[in-house]
Structures are given as structure tokens and as C-alpha cells.
Design a protein around this nucleic acid. Structure first.
Length: 152
DNA sequence: GCCAACGTTGGC
DNA sequence: GCCAACGTTGGC
């Protein structure tokens, strides 16, 4: 069992949007960063805990709890020339980009980035490191536990 | 809109 | 393999 933080722009896909979907589940398409892809492909297992983070919005922070709902499989948007996420260099016989399904578990209070930064127990979070921009980052069990307590 | 930080591309 | 140029992310 591992833990992750996944960023989503609420204008694109908020925690409410995911909860409103069938099975509260969404395919996490559009990741175009190798490190983030590798976390999905090599690290994630069904049932892993996910902190659902709202980014690029007025109040960035953790907005909900989710879980990994599938193992990694090819992201079909990479082959669609009309898609914003089209990658002409990726071939169907050798897909470059993968995705997983993510299932929303519950909405939480908005736990703002500023509150995460202010908590000494969380100072090592990958999310909070200088210059960190990864849309998918690992979370340690201790960090997960701290955040669960903050969301109680 | 600004800008720091980082990733990718491509010429050499 | 180096590295300049460019594109993207994302908080502010």
C-alpha cells in the first residue's frame, strides 16, 4: 500500500466532478511527464491512497481523498490528433504515455497549501520542495497520517 | 501577468 | 554529450 498526491485543475476536473461521475471514477489522462508516468506505471497499485489536490486556482490545496482504481494502461488521448494531449511521436504499438483510473472516496475541507507549508511534519513532502512541479508525487505513510488527522 | 524552476528539443 | 532556446507549471 502506497500513497500519492495527484494534482488537478478544478476548472478541468474537480473533486466534485469526479464524485459526480459513474463509480466516482475518472481516467487520469493527459500526464506528459516521464517521472509522473513512471509513478503510475511502476509504483501505483489498485487501492493506493490518493490526496486529490486542486492546483492553478484561487485556493490551491488538498480537496479530497481518492484511491487508485486500476493499474496503468495506455492513455488513448496521445493518439488523437484532435486532443490537446496528442503526441505525434507516440506509436500505438509502443505507447509512450500511460494512465490509471482514479476513484474519488470523499470530499474534504480545503486544506490549503499554506497550511501544508506551515506544518513541520510535512516539510519533506515532495509537493513542497522548491521548484517541485510534478503533477503526481509520492506521499510517505507518516505524511498521509498527518494529513488524515488534519482533515478529521 | 510575472517569473522561478524545471523539462524537452535539437543543432553542433 | 553539451547546452542554448524554448515551453510548461503553478503560486503569487
Amino acid at each position: 500500500m502506497a500513497y500519492w498526491l495527484m494534482k488537478s485543475e478544478p476548472d478541468e476536473m474537480s473533486i466534485d466532478d469526479v464524485l459526480a461521475r459513474p463509480q466516482s471514477t475518472v481516467p487520469w489522462f493527459g500526464v506528459r511527464n516521464y517521472q509522473a508516468r513512471n509513478f503510475m506505471r511502476d509504483g501505483m497499485q489498485v487501492g493506493d491512497g490518493v490526496l486529490f489536490y486542486h492546483s492553478s486556482c484561487p485556493q490551491p490545496g488538498i480537496a479530497g481523498i481518492a484511491e487508485v482504481a486500476s493499474s496503468a494502461y495506455p492513455d488513448h488521448t496521445q493518439f488523437d490528433p484532435r486532443s490537446h494531449y496528442y503526441d505525434p511521436k507516440s506509436k500505438p504499438e509502443e505507447p509512450r504515455w500511460q494512465m490509471v483510473d482514479v476513484k474519488a472516496v470523499r470530499k474534504t475541507r480545503l486544506l490549503p497549501l499554506s497550511e501544508l507549508r506551515a506544518n513541520p511534519a510535512l516539510e519533506d513532502m515532495v509537493l513542497l520542495q522548491k521548484g517541485s512541479r510534478l503533477s503526481i508525487t509520492p506521499v510517505t505513510p507518516a505524511q498521509w497520517k498527518t494529513i488524515q488527522a488534519l482533515l478529521k
